[in-house]
Design a protein around this nucleic acid. Structure first.
Length: 862
RNA sequence: GCCCCUGUGGCGGAAUUGGUAGACGCGACGGAUUCAAAAUCCGUUUUCCUUACGGAAGUGCGAGUUCGAGUCUCGCUGGGGGCACCA
């Protein structure tokens, strides 16, 4: 008991008590049960950096609410947790602190697990996995072998983004503004032999299936749609003048073929490279293009440049006309065929290029209402609809009809065909790093790249490695890579590249179904039962890569017989970021929130020096800006449940959340008000005994409270189904306020208090599990709330008997009247017109029309 | 440049999807309690006019549809995000 007889929620005692009880009771252990409907809740697993942050707390709290709610609804819930444990930070730590990546990672896992456990999450820890352990990655190596056999994995020479600091290859998507996403180093282009997964094999299906993912945010579906980037068009093969070979281009506008005035190829197009070998000027132009990198910023700032190769091509339809081939800095080798034809009149970029090099601009699409004799192109290319002209056999056709006609003609002549092109490229998975899953391949001078036989798996990482030099420790290890060729027995060398860590996270959702299976990744029956994930929750930053790769793996694994599933994640929820105000000293140095004092008048000063502090806008919590609040401090200071309630209270979960100290205080006040109402029962406000019967009749006021309780059950249930957790909390607080207002010591009041408080506790349980278990027990219950069913509302009490109906005159609110529910129009009209205010508003005039919407509104039009 | 989302009190946000705008919380102000403070409790809190009853305006701005618009349509404007010489 505290001062003045008030007790406080003692989370230091209560929270561990219930976590122990849940563990002892194996409350969250999941097992397959064909007789029960399953529900698989998954949050994106964390990288084991060593400390949890507020983003984790938010993510896992959201998932936990879903998991606990679904469990109470009777589902057989699977809610697992693991560690995305391979990755570069472990190697960086190894270099900086001379600690082995495995040791560093395992210690981080241990401390993060402890921190996570204090949040009281309903996780089945028996299924915990860490992707860096051979027990996990050996199955991944087997999948790779199966992908190879199915033609879904292959090796090719390819241009890669080379990060000179990490000495590793980056995916296109990991290059941001020409710089490595982790190191910020300027990325170079290099050619390396790389392993690829054939994600493009499924491009069409990955695109089409997006339509079926109804429980995914539209935003994410749209992003994937754009990423896959399907475009219909044609490939056109031009004969190169005086040579035997052809130049193949891709175009989405074959209808404009008669408006062509040049061709352009990418700097690393095979033809450009060939010509560059004998032409030093061209070679230096190519070098210039390569230097530009794939950086969009560099490309944008650079002007459109071309280099005349001296070669020309012949037009398939126009006799005796040839067009120059340029090497151009704006043509990308990775898209289409790495070559284009330019039609300046109908493409802005081509027009700019044509003006620069004084090439013809021939319009071939005539906008409606223009005269073909006078229509010319000035500074703006015309990209709209119209009738084709200047185009021989196409004249008069529309754009779409023109496209089909050209394709038909090209196919007849054998100089082209209709085709579909995708922006999506195959997934390069080779990384020149130590701390990743080894790629199970042995290179042999005679046999080439030979897969390691399945029975020899896993290929394990060697423990004795050094990080003295940059680059890959596996490559310079004295003995590890030297092995006999599995095929012929001669000396060979292992592949020293390891997998991109996105590979591990592409199938972990399935491993959780059968996490302790030693001889296979997962049994068929386990994934048949548990998959797909019913609700996946994580950050929007994974909208494209992780989610697309997982969808690919799902298809590849199904093709290889591991499972039979259309999509891995039936429902997806993307949460917003956790933000906080930023603080800086006068000198501009960032300050942590706990270094800042706020005086009564709101002025900010430094805790130690008293110097004034400037307040900045709220931004995503990040170490660099120091605007971070450590979840451990919050859990130690207020308890996990207060943190959870605050996390869920104010902001809808898909929006950014502003972390405020006063908001946490507000949640803390609510927790204690509820606590005291049950623990410090005032004799003026008694609570009825456990299992007291409802009084046979209730007063009018009592009935309305009883109705409110049932309405709250229905409302909160609906909110939780729709992820409106902030509204659910608001409803619970509303009900709490009303129950606290119940006065009297009679049986009715006591019964209403018990029914109300028990309902509040049960509704709040998914959000504040420790607090509510304790209060449930203090209310006299012997069973645990975690094993109690979700309350159900009496539908007959959810709908009110009398309703308040608004009365408008000419659309303006003039009065509110009470009517029996579903009163007929005549009654509503008459009651409305009888109202004094309504009467005054109408005055002398005659109502022209009266609109009655039952139970809602009466609008008198005069 | 293209595409998507978004704009509601001092602040975070509600609003049964076209039917009573501002639930719930934060902050602020006033009061009770206290020697005082913290904690707690009770009020008030969109703006303007009015002593009051009540009235007027109000969901970024401007139009429109409708008996009725925060919600639908069009235009403008601010903010956020995605994609990008993608042929």
């Amino acid at each position: 008991m505290g001062v003045y007889g008030m007790s406080r929620y003692n989370f230091l005692e209560v929270e561990p008590k219930w976590r122990d009880a849940w563990e002892k009771g194996a409350s969250f252990s999941a097992s397959e049960d064909a007789g029960r409907e399953k529900y698989y809740v998954l949050e994106m697993f964390p990288y084991p950096s060593g400390r949890i942050h507020m983003g984790h707390v938010r993510n896992y709290t959201l998932g936990d609410v879903v998991a606990r709610y679904k469990k109470a609804r009777g589902y057989n819930v699977l809610h697992p947790m693991g560690w995305d444990a391979f990755g570069l930070p472990a190697e960086n730590a190894a270099m900086e602190n001379n600690v082995h990546p495995a040791k560093w990672t395992r210690e981080n896992i241990a401390s993060m697990r402890d921190q996570l456990k204090t949040l009281g999450l309903s996780l089945d820890w028996a299924r915990e996995i860490a992707t860096c352990e051979p027990e996990y990655y050996k199955h991944e190596q087997k999948m790779f072998l199966d992908f190879l056999e199915a033609g879904l994995a292959y090796r090719k020479e390819s241009w890669v983004n080379w990060d000179p600091v990490d000495q590793t290859v980056l995916a296109n998507e990991q290059v941001i503004d020409g710089k490595g996403w982790r190191t910020g180093a300027v990325v170079e282009k290099r050619q390396l032999s790389q392993w690829f997964f054939k994600i493009t094999e499924y491009a069409e299906d990955l695109l089409k299936a997006l339509e079926e993912l109804e429980r995914w945010p539209n935003k994410v579906r749209l992003m994937q749609h754009n990423w896959i980037g399907r475009s219909e068009g044609a490939r056109v093969r031009f004969k190169i003048t005086g040579r035997d070979d052809e130049l193949e281009v891709f175009t989405t506008r074959p209808d404009t073929l008669f408006g062509m005035s040049f061709c352009a190829i990418a700097a690393n197009h095979p033809l450009a490279e060939e010509l560059g070998r004998t032409n030093p000027e061209l070679a230096s132009f190519i070098a210039e293009c390569n230097q530009m990198g794939t950086s969009e910023e560099a490309i944008e700032k650079a002007e459109k440049k071309g280099f005349d190769t001296g070669l020309t091509i012949e037009h398939p339809f126009i006799k005796d006309r040839v067009f120059k081939i340029y090497v151009a800095n704006f043509v990308l080798m990775e898209y289409g065929t790495g070559a284009i034809f330019g039609c300046p009149a109908h493409d802005q970029r081509d027009l700019d290029f044509a003006r620069k090099y004084e090439l013809d601009v021939v319009p071939v699409v005539l906008p409606k209402g223009e005269d073909p004799k006078s229509f010319t192109i000035a500074d703006d290319a015309y990209t709209g609809e119209g009738a084709l002209f200047n185009s021989e056999f196409l004249d008069g056709l529309g754009v779409e009809a023109g496209i089909s006609a050209v394709i038909e003609r090209l196919e007849k002549l054998g100089s082209g065909n209709g085709t579909i092109s995708y922006r999506l490229r195959d997934w390069g998975v080779s990384r020149q790093r130590y701390w990743g899953c080894p790629i199970p391949i042995v290179y042999c001078d005679d046999c080439g790249a030979v897969p390691v036989p399945a029975h020899e798996l896993p290929v394990q990482l060697p423990e004795d490695i050094d990080f003295e030099a940059p680059g890959n420790p596996l490559d310079r290890h004295p003995s590890w890579k030297h092995v006999a060729c599995p095929s012929c027995g001669k000396p060979g060398t292992r592949e020293t590249d390891t997998f991109d860590t996105f590979v591990e996270s592409s199938w972990y959702f399935a491993r959780f179904c059968d996490a302790n299976n030693d001889h296979q990744a997962f049994s068929r029956s386990s994934v048949d039962y548990w998959l797909p994930v019913d609700q996946y929750i994580g950050g929007i930053e994974h909208a494209v890569l992780h989610l697309l790769y997982s969808r690919f793996f799902n298809r590849a694994l199904s093709q290889c017989g591991y499972m039979d599933l259309a999509e891995p994640f039936a429902g997806l929820f993307t949460q917003g970021m956790v933000c906080h105000e930023t603080y800086r000293s006068d000198e501009g140095a960032w300050l942590f929130p706990n270094q800042v004092n706020r005086s009564d008048d709101g002025a900010l000063s430094h805790v130690d020096t008293g110097a004034p502090v400037k307040i900045g806008r709220s931004e995503k919590m990040s170490k660099s800006r120091k605007n971070v609040v450590d979840p451990v401090d919050i859990v130690n200071g207020y308890g996990a449940d207060t943190a959870r309630i605050f996390m869920l209270s104010d902001s809808p979960p898909d929006r950014d959340l502003e972390w405020t100290e006063s908001g946490v205080e507000g949640a803390w006040r609510f927790v204690n008000r509820l606590w005291r109402s049950i623990v410090d029962v005032d004799e003026s406000a008694p609570i009825a005994a456990l299992n007291s019967a409802r009084p046979t009749s209730l007063s009018e006021a009592g009935t309305s409270i009883e109705r409110l309780i049932h309405k709250s059950i229905a409302g909160v249930t609906d909110d939780l189904e729709k992820f409106h957790f902030n509204r659910a909390i608001a409803r619970i607080r509303e009900l709490t306020n009303s129950i606290f207002e119940v006065s009297g010591t009679d049986a009715e009041a006591a019964w209403l208090r018990r029914f109300g408080l028990e309902t509040i506790i049960r509704l709040l349980n998914p959000m504040a599990p420790h607090l509510t278990e304790e209060l449930w027990e203090r209310l006299g219950h012997g069973d645990m709330l975690v094993a109690t069913d979700w309350p159900s509302a009496d539908e007959s009490l959810v709908v009110e008997e009398t309703v308040t109906v608004a009365v408008q005159v000419n659309g303006k609110l003039r009065a509110k009247i009470n009517l029996p529910r579903d009163a007929d129009s005549t009654t509503a009209e008459q009651t409305a017109l009888a109202d004094e205010n309504v009467h005054r508003a109408i005055g002398e005039k005659e109502p022209r029309r009266i609109i009655v919407v039952p139970n809602r509104i009466v609008n008198v039009v005069i």
